[in-house]
Design a binder for these strands. Structure first.
Lengths: 214, 214, 214, 214
DNA sequence: CATGAATGAGGTTTCATTCAT
DNA sequence: GATGAATGAAACCTCATTCAT
């Protein structure tokens, strides 16, 4: 399919991919083209020819770098989840062990990742279902771990009396969902920094879990 | 494409479509099949042949009722938005004019719609981008109106001193996003009623906007 | 196919069909619609639905009057050849037995038929090949007879010393071809009567066979 | 459609296409197959699969060389008109400026082209109407120019007193029509050379315009 | 590593036709 | 006699992928 979609699924245009140190040339161009197209039209709405055209490469060239179209998506999904996990890891390493601060650090990481790499986030979220089971498994594992981590923080906050929320897992679902969707509408053109959005969402998260002031 | 997706995009199996009074026969069967398939595999991942097979009709029969595959999606998107709007309308008609109650009614309508018709909601949200502009326009218009309505309620709450939130539009974005995602994970099998989920989300929404107790 | 052709295959719009005494109703409407469409787009470029649409009838109705699409064409071809033959017959019955006058009468009949029923003539000529052998046979027979008749007239003229042409059969081919093509370009809008065209073509025919003056 | 037509639209079998210097392989094979099938069954009566089968390639291969079925026809129509124009051009360049000789040269070129490439001529004439406007335009333009050229020769002959014909444009129509139809019946199997046919038609053309002897 | 050409399968849609009403 | 709905086949075309060069 080659028609452009009439209404954007992602508001922002860039940045698209984080630095991919070791990989240059056709690999990077193809990945970048696929990212843009999968984000805009979805995996099923994008043909290998579409990708090759945007990448200014022949369709056959794609197969020198990826075993199949699905593997291109798999690679984008992997990168997306890796970036997400990396931000989570850094956030945890640098934060004091207070639930209130831990939650803030996680939400900030979550939201800013979705604002900084919106296309990557949309593809990793919305096109995951297009992957065959074995290619999707690693991403699903990371997702479960992240959610579990967030849940443990919230439950610990509740146990310590710092948070007050009836069903922590529902709060986690709500907080996660809030952040996911940022990828769809955030763009620097809004005149608001990604940090400012993250700040606001941290406040929302605190409120949802009933965090005590201070 | 005819391979089954390995991980569910929607947890619930039913109910799928609201009563479509006057329409019976192939029209309803096709629509129901398309709903299930679009929800599971996406529009681009579903072929007309797939739909026909599930509906137990010939592909040609589909074209006696819909001008194209896109029009099948358009009809599902239309129905989804109509149900959503209908719930919003009823909620508003029956509620006291207090912002706190209005917000509660809207969130309850929003969440319960996504829990009651999860497939319809997922298709209407996640596959809207696959529609050509002219078919997507009515849904986009309804979306803007719903969001505007929610925003006005929150802003009024702030003006009246009942709510306390720095950027009402961000709060609206967060609240809306929370509810959207319910469609992906809710199923009665969780042992939790849709009403109970809605109750919890109403509480979250109140907290996000800093609603004063009472 | 339903797109209109961009350049006319027949210049004239009407008249289309001679009076069909005994047949009224759907039969006549279908035949008239098919005539127009076959003339403009050809048999292969016209669908049964196209015919039904123009005839303002359901496709199924067509099958109450014709066993198949091919039989609709066969009927038009039959009528076309019948009209042609009828004109030839009348021409012969009313003419003096001089080759010069006989040739004139035949050419006049041939040309005026193509000018009076251009759509019918174009369909009978240009779409004959689309008919299966058994449906085309009667028309092919009539064609051979007409040609043979013309050939005999020319050969007799040569024998009697009234015509002078080396290869009578080539002259007949040329004279017949000239007249056939009139159907494509003649229209009363040209400001010239069909009779005037026929007069001119009679003169051409005389010249081709080298008819002695008087 | 794959049934063979029962009565030939073109008597001759070959030669079919002029030398296409630079083009070999699938392009040429497809074009040759399409020429034969379009000539026999018409554009609407020939499927892409039919062409691919005769060309001994896959249908998909056709689309590596032509954007659509219509473009295959367009290419044939283009080649046909180019050959015709080329013959006209050569004829004019080599002839003395006497109207009588000019007319002879043109008619000879016209007729011999239709006898030498009968399939190409039939397709270019009889299937032109199946092309969308933008693809048909160049051919229509060439046609108008050829006709205009012939008309100017006849009118000049009349002015110079070498020809005597009341309506030169009608004579041109008749002469052109005569030649067109040669493509339908001529075949070397008749035992008559294309040149001999052309000679006869030159004589007919002279007679039609009333050319003075010598 | 990149490519142009080819392919078999399958995409969406239209076809001529039938049949119960 | 007319129809609305259905159908199996086939229409045109695009798909992801391969391979010799």
């Amino acid at each position: 399919m080659s028609k452009a979609s009439p209404h954007r699924r992602v508001a922002a245009e860039k940045p698209r991919l984080p630095e991919l140190p070791a990989r240059r040339g056709a690999y990077a161009v193809v990945l970048d083209a696929a990212l843009r197209l999968f984000a805009e039209r979805g995996y099923g709405g994008t043909s290998v020819r579409d990708i090759a055209t945007v990448a200014e490469v022949q369709p056959a060239t794609l197969y020198a770098h990826f075993p199949s179209k699905a593997h291109v998506l798999a690679e984008l999904v992997r990168i997306g989840h890796e970036v997400h996990q990396q931000r989570f890891r850094e956030a945890l390493l640098e934060v004091q062990p207070a639930p209130r601060l831990q939650l803030a650090a996680m939400v900030r990481a979550h939201v800013s990742m979705h604002a900084d790499y919106p296309m990557l986030a949309v593809v990793a979220n919305a096109e995951l279902h297009a992957l065959p089971a074995e290619l999707a498994a690693p991403a699903l594992q990371l997702r479960r771990e992240s959610e579990q981590l967030l849940l443990e923080i919230v439950e610990r906050g509740v146990r310590l009396g710092e948070f007050s929320v009836a069903q922590p897992w529902l709060a986690v679902a709500a907080i996660g969902s809030m952040g996911l969707r940022v990828a769809n509408w955030y763009t620097p053109d809004l005149g608001m920094s990604a940090d400012a959005v993250a700040d606001a969402y941290v406040e929302f998260a605190w409120r949802i879990v009933g965090a005590k002031p201070q």
